[in-house]
Structures are given as C-alpha cells and as structure tokens.
C-alpha cells in the first residue's frame, strides 16, 4: 500500500489517541463522547467497534475500504481476557468465493486490510461483563513482517486455491495456520454461488476471512510473532 509520507506522522498521532483509551471503561468512553446513556447494544462487538471508531475518527465502511482510508489503517476492536488472550477470532473481510480462481494474495482485499491494523483490546472478565467492567487495553499498531506476510500468503493460497479448484466443499475452519475462512452471513439461510470441480454451480454460504485467536493473541504480545 502506498502511503504519502505525511501520513506516517498522522498514523503516530492516531496511535497516541488510541493509547489514550487505555485503562478507561467502555462506559467512560461512551460518556466522553457525549452520550447521556450507553447506546443500545454496546455489549456487542459491533457496537463497541463503532464507539471506538467514533473516538478515533474513523470513517471507512465495513467492506469497501479500510477504517482510515487516507492512513491505510484498519481498526480492530478485539475482546480479550485478563491475560490478553483473545476470546474469539477476528473477522477481516468477506470473500467472494465465485472469484476464487482469479484471486491472488498480492492483490487481495484481505492483504490490503491487513497491511496496517490498529488493534484495540477490550478486556472483559467474562462474556456478559457490563460496560463499566470492560476496559480498554493498550492499542497496538501492527503491520505484517515479511515472514508473517509469507505465512499469511501460504494460508491464503491453501484456502483460496481449494475454493478456486472447485473444492469449496472440502474447506473447513481448520485449514490455515493464521488465516482461516469461515461462514460469514447474517444467518444460516444466506446463500452465494460457488463452482464445483466441473464448473457446476453450487449454492454455498457466504464466507469471510478471520485471523485465528491464537495468532492475534500472539501479536498482542509480540507484533512479529509467528506462533
């Protein structure tokens, strides 16, 4: 991704702003943003993400662009336990399975999204923790090291290659060391088109790329980790 040089300073400023969240609770952030009451649904990751986006001034959409387009920074709120272990894998982006046979890592949307990620950990003791209990940890700005990029490329090739070769039905969440592909849809009835090994059309659930929790957890401890 090309970054105008001036953006680097802005990226640093963004990181500093994210660091300001450290130690504050979700409720405090909500109040700081002028909300009289917690927005409905702030318990969920999506709403929480929106709150953080507002605090940091993100305005990219969920699909079409990264959260800070001019800085090339993608924002990821990541729920963790007290030991900074992520509680779940991190959604990166949706993938158009019907285009798998033309998809290359170097030009892929998932790679673009992962070029520069600002992880904002949210520490919640348990799944049902209230907004006052859930606190922000120290944000981390991460870009893949060349070795990480290679490892992610291998995962991408394994996964997308299988889909491109018409074997989407063999795909499962265990494939991929760091990156995995899983269903990503509003509900189980959503369908998209994929192609079988003879080019026949198959109905299948829409898929998306996720970073494994073991990988993001390791990143939070060491940005160059290859667990």
């Amino acid at each position: 991704m090309s970054l105008p040089s001036a953006s680097h300073a802005l990226v640093l400023a963004l990181v500093e702003r994210a660091w300001a969240l450290e130690g504050h609770s979700v409720a405090e952030l909500s109040r700081a943003l002028g909300e009289a009451e917690l927005p409905a649904g702030v318990h969920t990751k999506g709403k929480l993400g929106e709150l953080v986006e507002r605090a940091l001034g993100a305005h990219g959409g969920p699909g079409a662009t990264v959260d800070f387009p001019s800085l090339g920074v993608e924002l990821k709120t990541i729920p963790v336990d007290r030991a900074l272990r992520p509680r779940e894998s991190t959604f990166v982006c949706a993938f158009r399975v019907e285009e798998a046979d033309r998809a290359e890592w170097q030009r892929s949307w998932v790679r673009e999204k992962l070029q520069r990620v600002l992880f904002v950990p949210v520490i919640g003791a348990r799944a049902g923790a209230s907004a006052t209990e859930r606190r922000f940890g120290r944000a981390l700005l991460w870009s893949p090291t060349p070795a990480q990029d290679r490892a992610l490329a291998h995962d991408f090739d394994d996964i997308v290659g299988l889909v491109g070769a018409g074997r989407i039905e063999e795909l499962d969440a265990r494939l991929g060391r760091y990156l995995q592909m899983r269903p990503k849809a509003r509900d189980g009835s959503a369908r998209t088109v994929a192609y079988g090994d003879d080019g026949e059309r198959l109905g299948t659930v829409p898929r998306g790329f996720y970073l494994r929790a073991s990988f993001t957890g390791a990143l939070l401890r060491d940005p160059a980790a290859l667990p």
Binding site: R102, A103, W105, D157, G161, G164, A165
Partner: peptide
C-alpha cells in the same frame, strides 16, 4: 487461473 488455484490443482 490464479496461482493459488493452479497450486491447488
């Protein structure tokens, strides 16, 4: 096709 697809084949 994409290199990943050719690899899978």
């Amino acid at each position: 096709k994409a290199l990943a697809t050719e690899s899978a084949h």
